[in-house]
Amino acid sequence: MSEGWQRVRPSESDPRDDKPGTRWELSPKLDIEPFNLNVAVLEPGERLSQSHFHYHHDQAELIHVAAGRCRVEVADDRFIAEQGDTVRFDAGPEGVHLVHNPFDEPCRIVAMGWPPSGRHPVETVKTIGELLDERE
Rank of each mutant, 00 (worst) to 15 (best):
G45V: 11
R135V: 06
G4L: 09
E12A: 15
E25K: 04
V87F: 03
G129N: 14
M1N: 10
H54I: 00
V99L: 07
T22G: 09
L48D: 05
R108W: 02
C70S: 14
G118M: 03
R9M: 12
E73W: 12
R71C: 04
V65L: 08
F103N: 13
G92P: 02
R47V: 11
S2N: 15
V72I: 02
D90E: 10
E46C: 13
G21N: 06
D14I: 13
S117M: 06
E105W: 12
F103S: 10
E43F: 02
E82S: 11
H57C: 00
E33F: 11
P93L: 02
E25W: 07
G113T: 01
R23S: 05
E123T: 14
A75V: 10
A75T: 08
P116T: 05
A66E: 00
K126C: 01
Q6P: 07
D31L: 10
I128M: 09
C107E: 13
C70Y: 02
D133F: 11
P10R: 07
C70P: 04
V122Y: 07
E82G: 07
M1H: 12
G118F: 03
T124C: 06
V65R: 01
R135C: 08
R108D: 13
L30K: 04
P102A: 12
W24I: 08
V110Y: 00
C107R: 01
A81M: 12
F79A: 06
A60C: 07
Q59C: 08
S27T: 05
F89W: 03
G68M: 12
H64K: 07
G118S: 03
E134Q: 12
T124S: 05
E25H: 13
R69C: 06
E43A: 09
L98A: 10
S2D: 14
L30Y: 10
E134R: 10
S51R: 04
K29E: 13
G113F: 00
V8W: 02
A67Q: 15
D76N: 15
I80C: 09
H97K: 02
D58E: 09
N101I: 14
P106Q: 11
G113Y: 06
